[in-house]
Design a protein around this nucleic acid. Structure first.
Lengths: 143, 143
DNA sequence: CAATATTATATCGCACACGATACAGTGTTA
DNA sequence: TAACACTGTATCGTGTGCGATATAATATTG
């Protein structure tokens, strides 16, 4: 029995579990809007700046097109976005919000506050340091 | 444009991204062993204590049976574990390591060290506090 | 300008996650 | 002990993630 292989000694397992549980916590808030968590992330990006390329969304979300394209196809079917072929460059796909997608922002604006209250039975001792550590990990691992 | 809806202000997105990137970082280490990351987690648990019920694994990994059962079925097909029906209680399923599953521990023992070196281009400033914050989040969110 | 390389996106296949439901075995109760 | 509730696991359907590959459009090069 190797100590370093104990589940409780794995930072990665905590990261994996925390991420899953947080996503689960979003579910009851997103379900009324008909959104999944990754779809919500796409909308966060588009609410900041509309009419983006698929590649822009990929970069912003750190996801590849093989995840993003089907995600956008489902969102298009749900009437949240429209995908149009690029005019200057025919390889590109431009992603734009529909009225429905745009109006969801109003209904979503309360979610972050709601979540913050949600996951803090015990408040986090030092949120800034926590976020900074996550950023360090992300920057170390993304190419 | 609501400030709280900016992607960069979302702790959850960092958590989600960090978790994905860390899992990705495990891939090249686990692939030679023929394992996925969740399968590796199952083995970590079984290496600590063999012959567990499906429900034990579910509790330990904070996953539901609808995830764990198919996971174990794939691992059984891969010859890593055996699933046997409970004798005392016929509803239970006992999960045991095969020789192959057991012997993988030797090959896996270097992985944690390898990973620690891997994701620390910049070393984390305060790993203990980070782990503690993750535990707080997990404890707040699990029922 | 035709052949080739590159790029942006899409498709395919597989393995999770997870809500919802099914099902078989066990406990309980009238 | 027959009817019913409960429990442990399994199944189903949908939506990601992601490696591998395909496709179409643009850029490059001989």
């Amino acid at each position: 029995m190797y100590d370093q292989l104990k589940l409780d000694n794995q930072v990665c397992f905590r990261l994996y579990t925390a991420s899953r549980l947080v996503t689960q916590a979003y579910r009851p808030l997103l379900e009324p809007l008909g959104l999944t968590y990754p779809q919500y992330l796409v909308l966060l990006v588009l609410w900041e700046k509309d009419n983006l390329l698929v590649s822009d969304l990929c970069h912003r979300l750190e996801l590849d097109t093989n995840t993003v394209t089907p995600l956008l196809q489902r969102m298009e079917k749900a009437g949240l976005v429209i995908r149009t072929r690029g005019i200057a460059d025919g390889r590109q796909t431009l992603v734009s919000l529909t009225k429905k997608g745009l109006h969801l922002e109003e209904q979503a604006k309360g979610i972050p506050t709601c979540m913050a209250a949600n996951w803090q039975g015990q408040p986090l001792s030092n949120p800034e340091a926590f976020v900074q550590t996550l950023d360090t990990i992300i920057n170390n691992l993304k190419k």
